[in-house]
Design a protein around this nucleic acid. Sequence first.
DNA 1: TGGTTATTGATAATCATTTACACTTGATAA
DNA 2: TTATCAAGTGTAAATGATTATCAATAACCA
Lengths: 151, 151
Amino acid sequence: MEHRIERIKKQLHAESYKLTPQREATVRVLLEREEDHLSAEDIYLLVKEKAPEIGLATVYRTLELLSELKIVDKINFGDGVSRYDLRKEGAAHFHHHLVCMECGTVEEIVEDLLEDVEKKVENQWQFQVKDHRLTFHGICRKCQQNNNEAN
Amino acid sequence: MEHRIERIKKQLHAESYKLTPQREATVRVLLEREEDHLSAEDIYLLVKEKAPEIGLATVYRTLELLSELKIVDKINFGDGVSRYDLRKEGAAHFHHHLVCMECGTVEEIVEDLLEDVEKKVENQWQFQVKDHRLTFHGICRKCQQNNNEAN
DNA sequence: TGGTTATTGATAATCATTTACACTTGATAA
DNA sequence: TTATCAAGTGTAAATGATTATCAATAACCA
């Protein structure tokens, strides 16, 4: 954890931003809840536990900054809110998501499944791929089991 | 065009909705501007040319309805607005997008590039895929050329 | 025809996100 | 050390997309 904080601190410094206490508190929340896909509001409430005087606007500003630096990815699953997801350490690409249409849980696929597809896109469409977003919508394992039992 | 309107009319009837003049005007705009990725506001302005008395709320309601019936897909490229995209006739899956990070244009890939990837997801993650969203971010052909010339 | 229901348009309400602005902080130079 | 300055912050107000409300209208059916 501390190691990753250090890393992010350096990334900020490289662009001449500081890791202020508010920013650090926000990053810590993101690290602690790495598996979740938190909204700005969620993050705000969690950061408030560590740093009660923080303002919502600061959280938004921090998330925006982290987003620009590609430390987090801003995602949107179609409900009205943006969610923020830490990039895996050293990952060049955004990871994929499996969104269950029944229970709403979001699983992650860290492995990059798109290498072949990207090559195809670069060759056939002459489009130079820098990043991607891939989300599958469907039924997760648990809901499949529940459905089977119900029948 | 008329053929596709008929089709959509049937799809609505099948769920006991009607193709009102307002809904038809909205669908016509979507058909005419199929290549674009219009926001609700954009669509509203275009529909107003055909049916000046239409209200913005009706356009939203229509788009919501068409979305539920999977006649259109609601997409979000990260700017603050939802965009609406007609499904290609008979397409089981949402088509893919190439978003240029420099000029912002959005190209479409109709071909399904994900068949193999979906099989992998179903097998390895036991996730039953119903649909997907795939967007590539990068540099389009035109901007690549411009960049080369500039050097 | 009258009665019921779905649909609509205008408008107000909501809610996530941004902006404005005055205040704080922390670094730097005199 | 103290004055200065820019970056960063908190509060509150503003914005802008979307949704809800509600009275009026249109379509349908007995």
